[in-house]
Simulated scan of single mutants.
Amino acid sequence: MHIGRQYKITDFLAWTRWESSWILSWSLLVTIILQVTNWHFLTVPSSILALVGSALAITLAFKNQQCYARFNEGLMLAGQVSATSMVLANRLMSMVGRLDAATPGLGLKEIFYRHFAWLTALRFYLREGRSWENTFDPGNVSFLASTPSPESHSALADELKTYLSDAEVQKVMTHQGDKEGLIIRWQYESIRDLHTQNLISEYIFTVITAGLDDLVRLQGALKRVKNYPYPRNYYSIAVIVVKIFVLIVPFGLYPDARELGEPAGIGDWTAWLNVPFSVVVGWIFISMEKVGENSSNPFEGNANDVPISSIMRRIEMEMRIMIDGKTDLKPIEAKDSILF
């Protein structure tokens, strides 16, 4: 997530440099052909250009609104994971208390650390690549090379060793189902064992497992956003219309560029303004489409994603302070105004 005031224009130009180069080359080629051949019958009436542009603007407005909704949902769900984790931790501390100090084998600290393992497994799952995501886009590849996400240069097994025993890590890594699902299942079993040993009452058992139920629901909601993309039919029609529009823009703006200089008899010279005009118009629509698409997958690990790494680090820090009284962990800091 970008947490600065705004992106610089140079950031956008660098991000869209491949598309800008393509638009520039096409506009220059069209202008040369029209200038050399004088085949002005190839130009497109301004009414056609306006009609296609209007349809494209409506399509992009709809798409970008829906893509932002997906991002906003991902952010709200991540925030709910934070709030629910704090609720669960406070319930454990207030209802179970420090009984683990007086009752060997209670394992309250083990429950907390297993929650950290669940957070870790969940964020690694959310950072996994999907075929429809944009991490392989040329503009994003160069960005990720210089500003990688924490999960891209770490391994799940190595991080889980901080929270689980070697045997548990082995079970998680060889588990055929959802790894985070297995860890939270262990949490249910731990609370059940406390109840079975009569260390907690039926009421406390119900209240704590209700917190785990909320985490399971949030886990499922996060996975839904991760595993199901913005509908490909809407995405495809937006991309197709953008490409059609960018292709016809030089043919539509060429007569206007010539007309600027005709009163002064320099129409052949002003006709070359068709190139920068077409580049600017095409770049605007291309950029709008890219902004929407790069907001539609809120966990892929790009600059515009939900900062799940930072959110889950803060959850762990707060819970460590609860159980240990202190923590050596530091918040994840933004790099070049990008927070993961």
Rank of each mutant, 00 (worst) to 15 (best):
Y254D: 00
K226A: 03
L260D: 02
N274T: 08
T270D: 00
I240N: 09
P250E: 07
L212I: 15
W269Y: 03
R224F: 06
R258T: 08
D213P: 03
A271Y: 03
D256S: 12
G252P: 14
V239N: 10
D256Y: 05
Y228I: 14
V275R: 05
A271F: 02
S236C: 11
L222D: 11
V242T: 15
P255N: 10
G252Y: 14
P276N: 08
V239C: 12
F245Q: 06
Y228E: 15
I237T: 09
Y228D: 14
A271W: 02
P276F: 04
V246I: 08
I240C: 06
A264I: 08
V275H: 06
Q219V: 11
V279D: 11
D268W: 04
P276R: 04
F245I: 06
E259C: 07
F245S: 06
L247Y: 12
K243I: 15
T270G: 00
N274Y: 02
G211F: 05
V242K: 07
D213Y: 10
Y230L: 15
W269G: 00
A221P: 05
W272I: 01
G211K: 03
I244G: 09
P276S: 06
R232E: 15
R258D: 05
V239G: 08
Y254R: 00
N233W: 13
I237D: 00
P229H: 01
S278D: 01
I237P: 01
W272F: 04
L218A: 05
W272Y: 10
R224T: 13
W269K: 10
L247F: 14
I244M: 09
D213G: 10
R232L: 15
L260I: 12
K243F: 13
W269D: 05
R217T: 07
G220Y: 12
N227G: 08
P263N: 05
P229T: 04
N227A: 07
V246F: 12
V225Q: 09
Y228T: 13
A257W: 03
A264Q: 04
A238S: 13
I240P: 03
K223W: 05
P231K: 09
A221N: 13
N227D: 13
G267R: 02
A238V: 02
V242N: 12
E262G: 00
I248D: 10
I266M: 09
V242M: 13
E259L: 12
E259I: 05
Q219A: 13
E262A: 09
L253T: 10
K243G: 09
A264E: 08
I248N: 13
D214N: 15
V249G: 05
A257C: 01
G265C: 11
P263R: 03
V246Y: 13
D268G: 06
Y235P: 10
A264F: 09
V246G: 04
V275Q: 00
A264H: 08
F251Q: 03
S278V: 01
F277V: 07
P250Y: 15
W272Q: 02
